[in-house]
Structures are given as structure tokens and as C-alpha cells.
Amino acid sequence: MTHEWHWRTERSGGGRGGSAQPVGPDSFPSQGEAETWLGETYPDLLAGGVRAVSLYEGDRQVYGPMSLEPDPG
């Protein structure tokens, strides 16, 4: 069974509630590779208006939404 891991996000300023959109490559072969990609690119995503992401395995949400913004404390 092949698992497809991918990130989805809601962008700020998206109007009425916004809608979840894919972010990054279409899919990753493993959870670890998806998380590594996010760790390397989250500053660019944040600069582009992405405030939070959720990780999916296929159609199943694994976790999230997870904020990309710095912890204030």
C-alpha cells in the first residue's frame, strides 16, 4: 500500500474563512520527508502568507493545523 503525504494550508487574508489549499510538492514518500521539507521551507511559506499547515496521509489528517508563526514567549 502506497502512502501519499502532503501539506495543506489556509492562507491569511483569504476572505470569508479561506479554504484549505495544497502547499509544496504534490506528495512525499514518507512523513519524515514531508516534515523535513517543511522544516527547510517554512520561513518562505510564512513570508508568502501561510500561517498554519496540516499534514495529511492520503485523505486522513495526521495533525494540524500547526502554526508557522514564532512562539511569542
Rank of each mutant, 00 (worst) to 15 (best):
M1V: 14
T2I: 15
T2S: 11
E4G: 12
E4A: 15
W5Q: 02
W5G: 02
H6I: 01
H6F: 09
W7P: 08
W7E: 06
W7H: 05
W7M: 01
R8A: 03
R8D: 01
T9P: 09
E10Y: 15
E10A: 14
E10M: 14
S12E: 01
S12H: 09
S12R: 12
G13H: 07
G13D: 08
G13E: 04
G13T: 09
G14Y: 02
G14K: 12
G14L: 08
G15V: 06
G15R: 00
G15K: 07
G15C: 00
R16C: 06
R16W: 13
G18D: 02
G18S: 04
S19W: 09
Q21N: 03
P22V: 10
P22M: 10
V23M: 02
V23D: 10
V23T: 11
G24T: 10
D26C: 09
D26H: 08
D26G: 03
S27F: 14
S27V: 11
F28A: 04
F28M: 11
F28T: 05
P29K: 10
S30K: 08
Q31F: 04
G32T: 11
G32Q: 10
G32V: 06
E33S: 09
E33T: 06
A34W: 03
A34R: 00
A34F: 05
E35P: 07
E35D: 10
E35T: 05
T36S: 12
T36C: 12
W37A: 11
W37I: 03
W37V: 07
L38Q: 06
L38A: 05
L38T: 04
G39T: 06
E40K: 10
E40A: 10
E40W: 07
E40G: 13
Y42C: 00
Y42G: 03
D44P: 01
D44N: 13
D44G: 11
D44M: 08
L45F: 06
A47K: 12
G48H: 04
G49M: 02
G49A: 14
R51M: 15
R51K: 15
R51N: 15
A52R: 10
V53A: 03
V53G: 05
Y56S: 00
E57F: 13
D59L: 15
D59Q: 15
D59F: 13
R60I: 08
V62E: 01
V62T: 04
Y63W: 00
Y63M: 04
Y63E: 09
G64V: 01
M66L: 12
S67Y: 05
S67M: 02
S67K: 01
L68D: 04
E69W: 02
P70S: 04
D71K: 06
P72K: 00
G73I: 14
